[in-house]
Amino acid sequence: MSDVVCSGFGGQGMLTAGLILARTAMILGKNVTWIPSYGSEMRGGTANCNLKISDFKIGSPFVTDIDILIAMNAQSVDKFMPMLRRGGLLVIDAALCGASFRGDIRIESVDATGIAERSGNPRGANACMLGALAASGALFGRDETRGGMTAFFDSKGKDSAKNVSCFEKGFELARNLQGAPAWT
């Protein structure tokens, strides 16, 4: 069971990142729910989605204790970091590295925005973030996530090659900023 929140500014693709993970989960035969924030909820500077992935029946689709937080802006870190479980994983854009973080969580960092821009695919930052998530080993592996991403873009009738490339770079360039506390 993984309770995931993906959050960032509108346009940073965090809802799509959640959808890619949801599709990956579906392909792997898991139960999954995805629910977006919308309307006035989004006016606070974050567009986010709640994702629950489980081998068992899923109750509430709303996440209260987060296992994995993928955050692309400071507002998202401020808003959701307190809800991370002890030992949970925070995946951040490297631009946020200077912030102060809880000591009882794992942090994976990747220069998603920079990689995406240098790749000529500025909208591919979310794919980089998913690469970092795969590198952390906390949810799905590299091949599984790539497969989910390809299936997602296929279902939209879109070419996934540029995003897969960002995903691969994210996977390779991700670095572990803070390890798991010893007791986890």
Binding site: A22, I35, P36
Partner: peptide
Amino acid sequence: ASISQMMAP
């Protein structure tokens, strides 16, 4: 709103 906005297989 939850059931309608929610995605699931």
